[in-house]
Measured scan of single mutants.
Amino acid sequence: LKKGSQVEALFSYEATQPEDLEFQEGDIILVLSKVNEEWLEGECKGKVGIFPKVFVEDC
């Protein structure tokens, strides 16, 4: 996944840490960066945070 690409949430993700990005199933997320193999940083609904890659798929 490249910076600036968009992904769609397959499942809702509930934030458990302040840096987490919370979203609902079906939301479109703009990928800002790759944190590591399992986590991405993205923006959704004006909020920025990190989230697990397994919760999303390429649009």
Results as ranks from 00 to 15, higher is better:
51 F>H: 10
3 K>V: 12
54 V>D: 13
17 Q>S: 15
18 P>W: 02
43 E>K: 09
39 W>S: 03
20 D>A: 10
18 P>M: 09
12 S>L: 11
23 F>S: 03
38 E>Q: 00
41 E>H: 03
57 E>M: 06
12 S>Q: 00
26 G>W: 01
28 I>A: 10
34 K>V: 15
2 K>C: 10
37 E>C: 11
17 Q>I: 07
56 V>W: 06
6 Q>N: 01
6 Q>W: 14
11 F>K: 13
37 E>L: 03
51 F>I: 05
58 D>I: 09
56 V>C: 05
20 D>S: 05
17 Q>R: 14
28 I>M: 12
36 N>Q: 06
14 E>H: 14
20 D>C: 12
7 V>G: 03
36 N>G: 11
12 S>P: 09
1 L>A: 01
9 A>F: 10
9 A>H: 06
57 E>S: 14
34 K>E: 15
19 E>N: 14
52 P>M: 09
55 F>G: 06
55 F>V: 14
8 E>D: 07
20 D>R: 05
19 E>P: 00
55 F>P: 11
50 I>F: 07
24 Q>L: 05
11 F>C: 15
3 K>C: 15
40 L>A: 02
31 V>W: 04
27 D>C: 08
39 W>K: 03
48 V>K: 14
21 L>K: 02
28 I>R: 14
4 G>S: 01
25 E>Y: 00
49 G>W: 11
58 D>N: 11
44 C>D: 04
24 Q>N: 12
18 P>R: 10
46 G>F: 03
35 V>Q: 08
50 I>S: 06
30 L>F: 11
9 A>P: 13
46 G>R: 07
54 V>L: 07
53 K>D: 04
45 K>V: 02
23 F>T: 02
51 F>C: 09
1 L>N: 12
32 L>A: 09
29 I>S: 07
11 F>Q: 02
3 K>Q: 03
54 V>A: 15
19 E>H: 11
35 V>W: 12
23 F>I: 07
59 C>G: 03
16 T>Q: 10
26 G>R: 06
59 C>H: 08
57 E>P: 09
52 P>L: 11
54 V>W: 07
44 C>I: 02
20 D>W: 02
53 K>C: 01
19 E>Q: 10
22 E>K: 06
28 I>Q: 13
32 L>C: 07
39 W>M: 13
52 P>V: 04
27 D>R: 08
40 L>Y: 15
22 E>Q: 15
55 F>K: 04
53 K>N: 07
33 S>W: 08
4 G>I: 15
32 L>K: 14
25 E>L: 02
27 D>P: 01
14 E>Q: 13
40 L>T: 02
51 F>A: 03
42 G>R: 00
13 Y>S: 06
53 K>S: 07
2 K>V: 08
34 K>G: 01
20 D>K: 03
37 E>T: 10
38 E>F: 11
33 S>N: 13
43 E>I: 04
31 V>G: 12
12 S>F: 07
39 W>H: 00
36 N>S: 04
8 E>A: 14
11 F>Y: 10
10 L>Q: 00
9 A>L: 06
15 A>F: 04
16 T>N: 08
39 W>F: 06
23 F>A: 08
22 E>F: 05
42 G>C: 02
6 Q>H: 15
46 G>Y: 08
58 D>E: 13
5 S>N: 00
33 S>R: 15
42 G>Y: 06
38 E>D: 12
51 F>V: 08
14 E>N: 13
26 G>S: 06
23 F>K: 12
37 E>S: 05
8 E>M: 15
49 G>L: 07
34 K>M: 08
17 Q>K: 15
8 E>P: 08
